[in-house]
Simulated assay, not measured.
Amino acid sequence: MKDSKGKGRQNATTAKPLIPRQGANEPYNSIFQRDWWLDTVAPGQWQSFEVTQGGKIVARMPIVQRRRAGVRLLKMPRLTQTLGPWVATPEGSLPTRLAKEEEWLSELASKIPQFDYFCQNWHYSVQNWLPFLWRGFQSSLSTTYILPDLTDLEAVWRNYRGATRTAVRKAQQAIVVDSGNDADSLYEMTSMSFGQWGRTPPYSREYLTRLVDACYERDAGKVFTAKDEQGNLHAALLLVWDRNTAYYLVSGSAPALRASCAMSLLMHEAICFASGVSRTFDFEGSVVKPIERFVRSFGAEPRPFITLRGYSRKLQIAQGFRDMFRQTAA
């Protein structure tokens, strides 16, 4: 990429030839709906509901189920950005296509098992949630950020903020980037990032290692690490991908070493690598203002996505009592 090469040593983060993974007729809209992904993040806890027509799947929706203290939870697994439905594109006029889509989505909604609490983030390509609204679900909008076209890396680089390009060049003078399946370094860095807020990562080292290994074995993910010439670890980042989209899934950095701008360099390297294996780069977005500002600085475009929620009558009553007691106590 022009103007992005510095004097710092770089490693082999070169992309492998594109491996076909996800075709237009496959019932998935992201890597997170793949069977192997769900087997990794929610072993024995998920099932997939399907709508077929003429022997072909026309709609599909995986669900992850858990029980906690007798409460039935249908929630997102850890480190899984989206689930929700995949829907085939019907043929015909626009009214015909919309009618078919609503029919298939309504059938999917009818298949969801009983629950006390339901929550799923949908892929931004699916915006029609009306059949779920008509069944009592609620929705809200969140935002992810994407680079929609990775084919022209020169254009991607030009769209970075000037300060971001400067940060990348600065880090290239002193930081060595490596890539592989170093889940331990990734967990160390994410623990440091959470630690500065007095928190711990919402996943265990074992969980993260299992996910990293599953992705790496399938040529669907790798960990990027940034170290200085003395071997000090500055930052780490996990990238996962299919042929459509590469996802910046999780990262962390050493708070005392952030002046090196290593995270900006890692993100840049991940984007360059992603251009060889995917078409789009998804930053996932964040409601945390500094994180949102950071990912936006790479020239990313916002994409709204739906978060769908549902509550059983039992849970609604329990929440009502809880809110009442809180108001009384206040």
Rank of each mutant, 00 (worst) to 15 (best):
R158Q: 11
P202Y: 15
L237R: 04
A236H: 00
V240C: 11
T190Q: 10
A220N: 06
G252Q: 07
R205S: 14
R169N: 12
D149I: 04
T144V: 01
P201W: 09
A183H: 08
L237T: 06
S179N: 12
H234I: 01
F224W: 07
I146F: 09
L186R: 09
V168T: 13
T245K: 12
W197E: 15
R165D: 01
N232Q: 06
Q172V: 08
G252F: 04
R165N: 01
K170G: 02
R205M: 10
S191T: 15
S251M: 08
G252V: 03
L150Y: 05
A183P: 02
E217P: 01
N232R: 06
S251V: 06
T164L: 03
I146V: 15
W241H: 11
E188H: 09
A220M: 13
A155Y: 00
R218K: 15
D152M: 04
A155I: 00
W241P: 02
D149M: 08
G231Q: 05
L249T: 11
Q196G: 11
N159L: 02
V177M: 05
A259P: 00
R210N: 09
A214K: 01
A167N: 06
I146E: 14
N232C: 01
G198D: 14
T225L: 08
G221N: 06
D213H: 11
R205T: 07
T209L: 00
R161V: 02
Y160R: 05
K170Q: 13
R205F: 07
A163G: 12
L153P: 03
A236I: 01
A256H: 08
P201Q: 14
A236W: 00
D184H: 12
G198S: 14
S191P: 11
T225C: 11
N244H: 15
L150I: 07
T209F: 01
Q196K: 15
L237S: 11
L238K: 06
L147T: 08
G180Y: 02
A155F: 00
E217D: 14
W197M: 14
A246W: 05
T166N: 14
A183G: 07
Q196R: 15
D213S: 12
H234F: 01
T151D: 15
T225E: 11
D182R: 13
Q196M: 15
P255G: 12
L239A: 10
L233D: 01
T245A: 14
Y187W: 14
D213C: 10
R210E: 07
A167P: 01
Y160L: 06
L257K: 09
S179K: 11
N181L: 13
L153S: 04
C261D: 09
C261M: 13
D242H: 04
L153F: 04
A220H: 03
G162K: 02
V212P: 00
R165I: 00
A214S: 12
V177R: 04
F194P: 05
G221M: 05
R210G: 02
D219L: 10
A174T: 15
D228R: 13
R218M: 12
L150C: 11
G180M: 02
D228P: 10
W241V: 02
A167H: 02
S185N: 12
Q173H: 12
D213K: 11
A226M: 02
F224I: 07
L239V: 10
F194Y: 15
G252E: 09
G231S: 05
R158D: 07
K170P: 04
K170R: 14
V240K: 06
R258Q: 10
